[in-house]
Write a protein that binds this DNA or RNA. Structure first.
Lengths: 70, 70
DNA sequence: TGTTATTATACCCGATAAGGTATAATATGT
DNA sequence: ACATATTATACCTTATCGGGTATAATAACA
């Protein structure tokens, strides 16, 4: 899992001053999901991740990851 | 699911002239997964999606989705 | 120190993602 | 028309994600 995602979630959650439980409730996911997300579990469902990211106006998109040209 | 992801997979696969099966084998996922991915299923596992995207040098990253500032 | 709030860990269980296979549909080419 | 290749759909099974709960650890604050 990308640190980028983990860090974003943690930081944005703090920005909005939300507890893990509050974020979970608002996003409509379980508390455990938020935990696993912030702890870097990488077998999470994409739609659930997006549900959480939507709370911050974000979503997962494909991006070039290597050096070479597309 | 974002059309962006679907379109990217389809186009990149064609660019490399791979069948769904070939892409599945190379990425280490099942053929059915490639199908569901290209058909817009949004409950897919993030790590599996990234396995496929890695074949093209891509990966899923969080991106701002709305108009407002972060 | 003690109390409360928040986060982490561990367990159980239902729902379903993912794989595999078979069949059908749709190209593609002759 | 007929093959062949590729993709789509349907069904079954296994593995596990995700939710929930309980408990433990940590943080924050007085």
């Amino acid at each position: 899992m990308s640190d980028e995602l983990i860090q974003l979630i943690k930081i944005k959650r703090k920005d909005l001053d939300l507890t893990q439980k509050e974020l979970a409730d608002r996003a409509g996911v379980g508390l455990r999901f938020i935990r696993e997300l912030e702890q870097g579990k990488n077998t999470l469902r994409l739609d659930k991740v997006n549900q959480v990211l939507a709370m911050f106006g974000y979503r997962m998109k494909p991006e070039k990851d290597s050096y070479e040209e597309g």
